[in-house]
Computed example of a mutant assay.
Amino acid sequence: MYTPPAFREDDRAALHAMMREARLCHFVTATSDGLIATPLPLFLDPDEGEHGTLHGHLAKANPQWKSAPIGDAMAIFMGPDAYITPSWYASKREHGKVVPTWNYAAVHAYGPVEFYDDTARLLEVVTRLTDLHEHERPERWAVTDAPEAFVQAQLKGIVGLRIPITRIEGKRKMSQNRPAADRAGVAEGLADSGRISDRIVAGLIPGGK
């Protein structure tokens, strides 16, 4: 990922927070048949390994796990993003030398991938993933709410995956390279947008509202 110094995010805690907030990622492997990608909800264990470890599962019918990866796997986590019109820049009114751009946050995590079908490990991963996304709900669903025989049958249809992260890159492009007046204009414009994602980005502009 191209990360100019103004946009590079190196703080480990911030990178992990961006990954958690993204929730769904794209799991990518290079194979002899070409690139293969699957959208997956993975969870991060920050204390497992130097940079943390990603865990999840995919359908056993998915051919991605059957194609031996060439080199490391990649997990792409995309955060909030928004189109930025030059009309919001104060500098447009001053000299007009401005162009559109896009603001976004992203993390790319790399590492060797392990696939497995051990039932006990699969049950642990499914339980942890479920608990992670149910914990904020007032009426939480748990894996144990389903009949045990049904759960065991479902586990036969998935394959677990584990990616110990060996390299991680983060980028937070939020108009940091623009003058203060331009950033304020971007934040105001995004805050007035009808898109929820735009309003989220508005709150991430340095020096914005």
Rank of each mutant, 00 (worst) to 15 (best):
A120L: 03
Y110F: 15
Y104M: 12
S87Y: 08
R140F: 04
P138T: 02
R93H: 12
V126Y: 11
A142S: 12
T101C: 00
V113T: 06
I70C: 06
E139W: 08
H108F: 12
E94L: 10
E134H: 08
P80R: 10
G71L: 03
Y116G: 10
N103C: 08
A73R: 06
L123N: 10
R140I: 02
E114F: 05
S91Q: 02
R121S: 13
A142C: 11
E139P: 01
S91E: 07
W102I: 01
P86G: 09
A106D: 07
T119M: 12
A75S: 12
V98I: 04
R93A: 15
P112Q: 12
E114W: 04
Y89N: 10
S91D: 09
K92N: 15
P86W: 07
L132E: 14
P100A: 05
V107D: 09
H108E: 13
R93M: 14
S91L: 02
W88S: 14
H135W: 13
A109V: 07
D81L: 06
E114D: 14
E94Y: 03
K92P: 04
H108G: 11
V99L: 02
T85P: 04
I84M: 11
L122E: 10
W88V: 09
V126A: 14
P69Q: 02
G96C: 04
M74C: 15
T85K: 00
L122G: 06
W141R: 07
W88H: 04
N103L: 01
L123K: 13
P112F: 03
H133D: 09
R121K: 13
H108W: 03
V126I: 11
P86D: 06
M74A: 14
I84V: 15
P112T: 03
W102V: 05
D81G: 14
Y83N: 07
T101S: 14
S87K: 11
D117Y: 01
A75F: 10
W141I: 06
R121Q: 14
R93T: 14
D131Y: 10
P80Q: 13
S87W: 13
H135K: 15
P86F: 06
R93E: 15
Y116I: 12
Y116L: 07
H95W: 08
D118F: 00
P69H: 03
R137V: 06
E134I: 07
D118R: 01
S87C: 09
K97S: 08
R128C: 03
R140Y: 03
T130N: 11
F115H: 04
N103W: 02
F77P: 12
D118T: 01
A142H: 14
Y83E: 08
V143P: 05
R128T: 00
T119K: 13
A105D: 10
P80V: 02
Y104G: 09
Y116F: 15
G111Q: 12
P69K: 00
S91Y: 00
I84R: 05
M78L: 15
T127I: 03
K92E: 11
Y116W: 05
H133Y: 14
Y110L: 10
P100L: 13
H108P: 11
H95E: 02
Y104R: 09
H135L: 05
K66G: 11
